[in-house]
Amino acid sequence: MPGSTVFTSIAPYIKVILDGLPETLLLTFGGFGIGLVVGPILAFMEIYGPKPLARLAAAIEEVIRGIPLLVLMFIIYFGLPELGIRLTPLPAAILAIGIRSLAYQSQIIRSAVISIPAGQWEAALSLGMSPVGAFINIIIPQAFRIAIPGLVNQFTVDLKDTSIAYAIGVAEIFTQAVHVAQVILDYLPPLLFVGLIYFVLTYTASSLASTLYRRLAIPGLGAGGVVTV
């Protein structure tokens, strides 16, 4: 079987590749986590903030979304030292992934909140809720459910793009796989193996997400036209 020969040749090196897993997960959860904290802030600024603030938030979002992750990473890792800010590869990569992620998460949250009918607001206020109370009790629970598929999609995008951190030498699984390839002078086995790891990780994330989505599902509350997962 070709499959078995492919993997016997890297059997001794599997541990080397798996050694990169903590870095990959740190990059993913760190980057996505930054987005999860800052993204909603940006989104709320855009929706509820005064006009100048809303414009600023929209501009930040648009600028970040127009720049490749690799360039963000290079600006942070190679460019910022010129301003006296020096980061080691791992934090630099996490920051880059986080900045990119927050711009997309902001958009996902924003469209989820906007998609909630105005009647929900009016009904909540008519009950005597304060705007903050209405937001927390009525808008957030609905918007969160709508945003789940989009957020999970972003999570898998962040996960796959951790491989780009290879560019600044973070020892995540892709970097490790390439190093193994250079040692055994054969790219195919390590690349296939690391591909399998990514696939299992993204697949697990998507499955968990659809379970969560179904668990939380409320009849009549859709995913707002977000196609993914």
């Binding site: 898998t156 796959k160 793009d161 951790t162 491989s163 780009i164 290879y166 892709f174 390439v178 390839a181 054969d186 790219y187 195919l188 690349l191 296939l192 690391v194 591909g195 990514y198 696939f199 993204t202 697949y203």
Partner: peptide, 19 residues
């Protein structure tokens, strides 16, 4: 969709020549 684009490019450029 389950794997990075970077990986796919590496497969084409670095792994295929051995085939």
């Amino acid at each position: 969709r389950g794997t990075p684009m970077l990986l796919q490019l590496f497969l084409l450029y670095y792994a295929l020549p051995s085939a």
